[in-house]
Amino acid sequence: MKQRAVSWSFSVWLLLVLVFAAMPVRAGERLFQYSTIDALLAGVYDGELTMGELLKHGGFGLGTFNTLDGEMVVVDGVAYHVTAGGKAVPAPRDAKTPFASVTDFDEDTILKLAPAPNMKAFNAQLVKGLPSANAFYAIRIDGRFPWVKTRAIPGQTKPYRPLAELVKEQVIVKYTNVEGTLVGLWSPAFVKGVNVPGFHWHFLNRERTAGGHVLDCAVDSVVAKVDQLLEFTVKLPAAGAFAGTDLTPDRSSELESVEKGPAQ
């Protein structure tokens, strides 16, 4: 009888081990990405991943839309399409992206930040509070900002030109004394060519009607909610121009000009 009970207990233990081993990792612990930043820099502006499929992997993040039509800001489970000029609307679920990164935001740490006159000072302050520079982080900041300078690029037609050329056509909008949400990602240096090393920020106003890719901003005393992400998943496009694009060149200088913008 005792042997049978021990055998039954071992069977239950083994079953629980197998069940937990088969369970997927919480999305909030993982950053999901579609395509690579170097492919975007090289002019791969069409992807097959829809917003409906993207949002299954997370409700917080950023990216862009097919034909490089504006900026994507994902917050509170909604993907917003910010067009050139700064207007933001919820994106249709069948809209597609050539590049995006999302997670399910699950706050791990809160950082209290002092006022900063620009993004360089703001980022320098924030990076000191990150537990490690070698992890990924999703960062959310809600509040009122003295000013936020954003950009979005109009949709393109083929043949596509490299992104470093197209930023010259970006439409810049400056919001002053604005309430809203900064949606940020930090990626470690070792993902060079795959994602944007360091900080990458997008913005939406409180009404969710305006925003874009952040070129610069100033902050008052704010609270940054930080989600550390220790897993990173990349889904590569299975069709289109990605397979035939030369991704061997070092595009670091192109990325720097794209992220900062020629107006900087």
Rank of each mutant, 00 (worst) to 15 (best):
A27E: 05
G28A: 09
G28Y: 00
R30A: 12
L31A: 05
Y34D: 10
S35F: 04
T36M: 11
T36C: 08
D38Q: 02
D38V: 07
D38N: 15
D38R: 02
A39M: 03
L40H: 14
L41M: 15
V44E: 07
V44K: 09
Y45T: 05
E48M: 08
L49N: 01
L49Q: 14
T50A: 03
T50N: 07
E53F: 04
L54D: 14
L55V: 01
H57A: 13
G58Y: 00
L62C: 05
G63I: 14
T67M: 00
T67D: 11
D69K: 13
D69H: 13
G70Y: 14
G70A: 09
G70H: 09
E71F: 04
D76P: 04
D76Y: 02
V78M: 07
V78E: 14
A79C: 14
Y80H: 12
V82I: 15
A84T: 08
G85R: 04
G85E: 02
G85N: 04
G86S: 12
A88L: 08
V89I: 15
A91V: 11
D94F: 10
T97L: 15
T97G: 15
A100H: 11
A100N: 13
S101Y: 13
S101P: 06
S101E: 13
V102C: 01
T103I: 03
F105C: 01
D106F: 03
D108R: 09
I110D: 08
I110S: 06
K112H: 14
L113E: 00
L113H: 08
L113N: 02
A116L: 00
N118Q: 05
K120Q: 12
K120E: 12
K120G: 08
A121W: 06
A121T: 12
F122P: 06
N123S: 10
